[in-house]
Simulated scan of single mutants.
Amino acid sequence: MEKEAQAEIASYVGRLLREAFGRGPQSIYVSINRPFVVLYLRNFLSPTEKILLEQDQIHSIQSTRDLLMKSLIPEIKAYLLLLAGMDIQEFYYDWGLHNHSGVMVGVEGRDAQGQPLLGCEYTGKDELQHEISLISQQVQKRPDELYSCLINDRTLLVIRVGILISIEKELIRIGHEESLRLAKRNLEKGHLHNNGHFQKFLNAKVIDLFVDWDFHLDKSVMVFILNPSP
């Protein structure tokens, strides 16, 4: 039943994206470990976006996708509730435009801490969480809370709570949320993508890495897509 639900979710979201963007992803991989659902999108770039990407117009692509996602997220949440009984309260997404990839993460309830989760003990966990804390400190500040979960052998989820500094909170308050998101995405991804430690800690190649924020909850989600070493 779970595999059927995952296939139906992938089919539905693929159709939504195709209708909104003119072209959907070649494949969507759905992973569920309640309270989390992770959708990994492969080969997702429309012909227009391809031209913009070649002209280094990344901000234009991200801005357009953000506008479209605002209308799609309520539909995706409603479908997850109907099909899987998942009452999604938090929703995150990010794009790996250089890889033509993307990720969406839904979270039931306001917080996953304290809930019995599978996969929350894995090789290299302490080292990875320490490294992410250091990166967070370089970009803004160490998170007040940090926890992670291996959703499956290819999908690692990291959640940070309490990472905003005072100037960032003020920028959000006066309406510069999108500029802050763009700046943080560029800064954090620069540190994350150029970090060779993750592969060593996890004994797996990191083939994609995503990050998004819910500024109003002062919370961030990272997703590592892995290719485990044999």
Score class of each variant (00 low, 15 high):
Arg18Glu: 13
Ala84Pro: 01
Gly196Phe: 15
Leu134Pro: 00
Gln199Ala: 15
Asn99Gln: 14
Ile32Ser: 10
Asp144Arg: 14
Asp111Arg: 03
Gln89Cys: 02
Asn99Gly: 05
Ile172Val: 15
Gln137Leu: 11
Ser133Lys: 15
Leu128Thr: 14
Leu134Asp: 12
Asn195Trp: 11
Gly14Glu: 07
Glu49Ala: 13
Asp94Ala: 09
Glu121Ile: 11
Leu97Arg: 03
Val107Gly: 01
Lys50Phe: 01
Met69Asn: 10
Leu41Asp: 04
Pro116Phe: 07
Ile174Gln: 10
Leu67Glu: 15
Ile61Cys: 01
Phe215His: 06
Gln62Lys: 11
Leu128Met: 13
Arg65Leu: 12
Gln129Glu: 14
Trp213Asp: 08
Gly190Arg: 09
Phe21Asp: 06
Trp95Asn: 01
Gly190His: 12
Gly85Thr: 00
Ile32Lys: 09
Glu108Gln: 10
Ile73Lys: 11
Ile163Val: 12
Phe224Lys: 05
Arg185Ala: 00
Gly196His: 15
Arg110Met: 03
Leu118Arg: 13
Pro116His: 08
Asn227Ala: 12
Leu41Arg: 04
Ser63Gln: 14
Glu108Ser: 06
Met104Tyr: 08
Leu41Val: 05
Ser136Trp: 01
Ala204Ile: 10
Val103Thr: 12
Leu117Lys: 04
Ile9Pro: 04
Arg18Leu: 06
Tyr147Thr: 02
Ala20Lys: 14
Phe210Lys: 01
Asp111Gln: 00
His216Pro: 00
Ile135Val: 14
Leu83His: 04
Tyr93Lys: 08
His98Glu: 13
Glu168Phe: 03
Glu75Met: 14
Lys169Gly: 10
Ser27His: 12
Asn186Trp: 10
Ser27Ala: 15
Gly190Leu: 11
Asp214Arg: 09
Gly124Ile: 05
Ile76Gln: 02
Ile9Arg: 01
Ser220Tyr: 00
Asp208Phe: 03
Val139Asp: 07
Leu117Thr: 00
Leu156Thr: 05
Gln137Met: 10
Gln89Thr: 00
Ser27Lys: 13
Leu17Glu: 11
Lys70Glu: 15
Tyr147Met: 00
Gly96Phe: 07
Gln140Asp: 04
Lys50Gly: 04
Asn194Ile: 06
Ile58Ser: 00
Leu150Val: 09
Ile61Met: 02
Arg160Asn: 08
Lys189Glu: 00
Gly22Ile: 10
Leu134Trp: 06
Gln57His: 09
Ile58Asp: 04
Leu150Arg: 15
Arg65Phe: 06
Arg34Pro: 07
Gln113Leu: 04
Glu178Pro: 02
Gly106Cys: 07
Asn152Tyr: 09
Ser46Trp: 09
Arg23Trp: 02
Phe210Asp: 02
Glu19Pro: 06
Leu182His: 13
Asn194Met: 11
Ala10Val: 09
Gly24Glu: 03
Arg65Trp: 05
Leu41Gly: 06
Ser11Phe: 11
Val105Ala: 05
Val161Thr: 13
Asp153His: 06
Val161Asp: 12
Leu146Lys: 03
His130Cys: 02
Ile151Asn: 09
Pro230Ile: 01
Gln62Phe: 01
Glu108Ile: 06
Gln138Ile: 10
Asp214Leu: 10
Gly24His: 02
Cys149Tyr: 02
Ser229Gly: 01
Gly102Arg: 05
Lys70Val: 08
Gly96Trp: 08
Cys149His: 03
